[in-house]
Simulated assay, not measured.
Amino acid sequence: MGARVIATSSSNEKLARLREMGAEHTINYKETPDWGKRVKELTNGEGVDHIVEVGGPGTLPQSFDAIKIGGHIALIGILTGREGELPTAKLMAKQANLKGLIVGSRRQQIEMIRALETLDMHPIIDREFPLAEIADAFRHQESGQHFGKICLTF
């Protein structure tokens, strides 16, 4: 059996695409600000095994609610800022692992690409920009309208 996926977004259009791609449940976090509790309801009170956390300090407390005991949270973004209050006692009570992840070195990126190729995984490409249009690429990212990766070609 494949992994069960619960996805969050502030865009109902993106959530519809995620359901088409196989997400079992989707939650609009703007419409459901207490989405961590909703995840618990969807999992019969258990919580989820893994969370890919892109929000950072502004959304981590909800991830702490949503994670199951002994689960893992991979922090890969800080969209809500670099610092903030975190309920660390909640994380400790869940005995969950929180790990900050950045693909920072050339070696790490090569290893990640090798893993993607081995697993025959293909990222979704939203749009490609020539390197000379990098400012447009950043504006596109900032708009939040993208679905998938924004790439630079050179």
Rank of each mutant, 00 (worst) to 15 (best):
G2D: 12
G2P: 14
A3K: 03
R4A: 15
I6P: 14
T8Y: 05
T8G: 13
S9L: 13
S9P: 09
S10V: 15
S11H: 08
A16S: 14
R17F: 03
R19L: 14
R19T: 14
E20L: 15
M21V: 04
G22D: 01
A23R: 10
A23V: 07
E24H: 12
T26G: 05
N28T: 04
Y29C: 11
Y29A: 09
K30R: 15
E31D: 15
E31C: 12
P33C: 13
D34Q: 14
K37H: 03
K37Y: 07
E41K: 07
N44A: 13
G45P: 08
G45T: 10
E46Y: 09
H50L: 14
I51A: 09
E53C: 08
V54I: 15
G58L: 06
L60G: 04
P61C: 04
F64R: 01
H72N: 01
A74P: 02
A74D: 08
I76D: 01
I76F: 04
G77P: 07
G77C: 06
L79C: 12
L79A: 15
G81N: 07
E83T: 14
G84N: 13
E85M: 10
T88L: 14
A89S: 02
K90F: 01
K90H: 02
A93S: 03
K94Q: 10
Q95R: 10
Q95I: 04
Q95L: 04
Q95M: 10
A96Q: 06
A96I: 14
L98M: 12
L101E: 08
G104L: 07
R107M: 09
R107Y: 02
R107W: 01
Q108G: 14
Q108S: 15
Q109L: 15
I110G: 02
I110N: 01
E111L: 11
I113Q: 06
I113R: 05
L116E: 02
L119Q: 09
D120T: 05
M121Y: 00
H122S: 03
P123E: 00
P123Y: 00
D126Y: 02
E128P: 02
E128V: 08
F129I: 03
L131M: 07
L131K: 01
A132R: 07
A132Q: 11
E133H: 03
E133P: 03
A135C: 02
A135G: 04
H140M: 06
Q145D: 05
H146A: 13
F147M: 04
K149W: 04
C151E: 09
T153H: 08
T153L: 06
